[in-house]
Design a binder for these strands. Structure first.
Lengths: 192, 192
DNA sequence: TTCACTTCTTAATCTAGATTAATTTTTTCT
DNA sequence: AGAAAAAATTAATCTAGATTAAGAAGTGAA
């Protein structure tokens, strides 16, 4: 089943009954997304949550100088959405674009909310996911203003060795908060 | 009741029964914390969650240059803990210190976990809280590397006008990611 | 197998914000 | 109230990283 991957992910954090989880999984739609296609564009209302089965996405916004700023990446077994737009029902400030050919499962906010209304186990699942996200966000904020650009890059490499090859360097530079030129400089320094 | 404030907070996001919520509230301990006292020190294991009834706290760590870096503030009706230490059972990298004379409610991780085992409504409550935290963290990350120091300060002021007076400027500068000297410069520029 | 496009690199110059250090103002404590 | 400590200001100097610009190297489609 195409939804098995999500099923396993849920079961690794919570314990819904077989019926409950199958009912839930029935509400997802499968999508194949080509590299550079958008799941969400700035200005749109985010109405879905996406679970990444395969591939890679980046969330970015256009800053006041017109430059793309990467806020997040998403890879296999991550949930993706613009939470701010989704929860507050406001136009999104973010773009979500595939960085590889990808496969996702999609569910509407209404359907998800309906399940969250009654299900202890799904509330547990998302609570635990969000706790982990919180830990990651906190650590990221801590890194962001404790470390120099060079240290940021080295730390990121250390924690995510395989990911560094996965996206163009200019995206990684943007995510880490500096320019591609500066990343080049760092990399040139390390070689000899 | 000293726990009424927390009760109201929970009831504004979830709908536990009267018995359920009262059972839960029975597990909290009230603490009065004097300005500059610590709730948690670097190296300790964080074993509690705190709900702030009144007052203000800062979470900070000591960076590799020996400087205090403020990661977060907490005020009335916020939950406080080092999530990373609490969840992963690792020694904390953070200090949590009162920035005012404060009042908190305290619950141990074990007791909280026991309630989360069975309660749909408490899982809902914390899931919703964490969604809001996520939105705030995302926005903060976005601000952090889209805005200049001056813009950061002005934006923070705009969103939190009353808070700016509440903590020393050196803490605010640290939270915003720059030095107190630079904050002085920004403020001097605005006056005339 | 070439044309077009995207990504990466290098180097010169520039700037926001850090650092240092001295001075003033505010707060706290007895 | 007065001394001591904590916090804020000011100014001079310094630096990590931005900006600009140009070329090199990959990548891909026809």
């Amino acid at each position: 089943m195409i939804t098995d991957q999500l099923k396993n992910h849920i079961l690794s954090f919570a314990a819904p009954t077989e019926k409950e989880i199958n009912d839930f999984l029935n509400n997802f739609e499968f999508l194949a997304i080509k590299n550079k296609e958008f799941l969400l564009k700035e200005g749109q209302y985010c109405k879905h949550q996406y679970f990444i089965l395969k591939g890679c996405f980046r969330c970015f916004f256009i800053n006041h100088k017109g430059a793309e700023k990467v806020v997040n990446f998403g890879i296999e077994n991550w949930w993706l959405s613009d939470f701010e737009s989704l929860i507050n029902q406001t136009p999104s400030l973010l773009n979500i674009q595939a960085a590889e050919n990808s496969k996702v499962l999609k569910i509407s906010k209404e359907k998800l909310d309906a399940f969250l209304e009654d299900s202890l186990e799904l509330n547990r699942y998302f609570r635990i996911i969000l706790e982990k996200v919180r830990v990651a966000d906190q650590r990221r904020i801590q890194f962001m203003y404790n470390l120099s650009g060079e240290e940021l890059y080295n730390t990121f490499r250390e924690y995510n060795p395989s990911f560094v090859q996965r996206v163009p360097q200019y995206m990684l530079a943007s995510y880490l908060g500096f320019t591609p030129e500066f990343l080049s400089k760092i990399r040139a320094k390390k070689k000899p």
